[in-house]
């Protein structure tokens, strides 16, 4: 066994070509660090992406990589996993790639619970095509293609994933690299489709879109760091919490740090209701949850596929070509 791999070992020899200051750099670095810490092997790791700034990611990872076509990375990854279930597969996508042109592939990959990890870089803008509004842009977004403001309601990546039956749903922000590494490590450990949304700053076309969540001073007041089994507390001095009022979450100022009656996070509950209402908590009314919203266990698609193959072999024996050729009604011509 050779020496353990370091962050550097996961860097490819290609020059990184994102704009200086782009949030993608932080995600790349967090991924390389997380994989090194996890001790994964490079040869068993595959990054698959679609099209967009985020989708250049595989070129910068010294693993196997496939920069595919717009929106279809989950489908390519599905084929990779069905052909070789032993590989560690990561899908890199963005809000345009994954939620616009590729929404169909995303939803169907998630519902099948294939064992790969999807990282969706959400910068709420189209970057590579130079600044049109995206499916996660706020209504009224003024861009080159919407000079009078966009008309569409934004999609929420987490509710899309939850509605698709995702077995693992998490969120992190590019500015908190250490937390991002933890989330990536949790996703890597999950067996099944892991969906991770990353708030990512496009400093050229949509700078500060997530400033409330990334600025160090504001962050504690605007983010709810989820911890399994712990009461939901946030704020600079851990002075506020989330309580349930009927079917609605409400923000409550804590009385001398008293956490009684606060909602406790349970990522493992199979019913998605809790995760769904966490996902729907939006700034500025609520702090936005980061960390693992949901992590439940379910059989993966490729394991069940291989079980069917195995069962067929056990029942009928390993297929024999001559038996196959001679099956059905045959006759002999003399």
């Amino acid at each position: 066994m050779s020496a353990p791999l370091t962050l550097k070992d996961f860097k490819s020899d290609q020059e990184v070509r994102w704009c200086p200051g782009c949030g993608d750099y932080a995600i790349l670095s967090a991924m390389q660090k997380a994989l090194a810490d996890l001790g994964v092997s490079r040869e068993n790791t595959v990054f698959v992406s679609g099209i967009g700034c985020s989708s250049r990611f595989p070129y910068y990872m010294n693993t196997y990589g496939f920069h595919s076509i717009h929106g279809r990375a989950p489908a390519v990854a599905t084929g990779v996993k069905c052909a070789n279930p032993e590989l560690d597969v990561w899908v890199i996508t963005g809000d345009g790639d994954g939620l616009s042109i590729g929404l169909g592939q995303l939803v169907h990959a998630i519902r099948r619970n294939l064992d790969f990890k999807i990282i969706l870089f959400n910068n709420r803008i189209y970057g590579l095509t130079k600044g049109q509004y995206s499916p996660t842009s706020e209504t009224g977004k003024v861009t080159k293609s919407t000079p009078d403001g966009s008309l569409d309601q934004p999609l929420n990546p987490l509710t899309v994933a939850l509605a698709s039956g995702a077995t693992f749903v998490a969120r992190c922000v590019d500015a908190d690299v250490k937390h991002m590494q933890e989330v990536i490590a949790r996703a890597a450990a999950h067996r099944g489709t892991a969906f991770v949304e990353v708030y990512q700053d496009c400093n050229v076309y949509n700078h500060h879109a997530f400033e409330y969540a990334t600025d160090k001073k504001q962050r504690p007041d605007h983010l709810l760091y989820l911890e399994h089994g712990k009461p939901m507390v946030f704020g600079a001095g851990s002075d506020r919490g989330i309580r349930l009022d009927g079917l609605r979450p409400v923000v409550e100022k804590l009385d001398n740090g008293n956490q009684d009656g606060l909602l406790k996070h349970d990522e493992s509950v199979h019913d998605p209701t809790l995760a769904m209402f966490l996902a729907r908590m939006k700034h500025p009314e609520f702090p936005e949850p980061v960390g693992v919203l949901r992590a439940v266990s379910a059989p993966t698609y490729e394991r069940r596929l291989m079980a069917q193959v195995q069962a067929a072999v056990e029942k009928r024996g390993n297929g024999d070509l001559d038996d196959l050729f001679n099956s059905g009604d045959v006759w002999d011509a003399k």
Binding site: V76, G79, C82, A83, L87
Partner: peptide
Amino acid sequence: IAAVCSTIGAAYAGAIG
């Protein structure tokens, strides 16, 4: 589209897609 893309992924991973 997913049908052909999954086929490409499988070929990349070494199967006859």
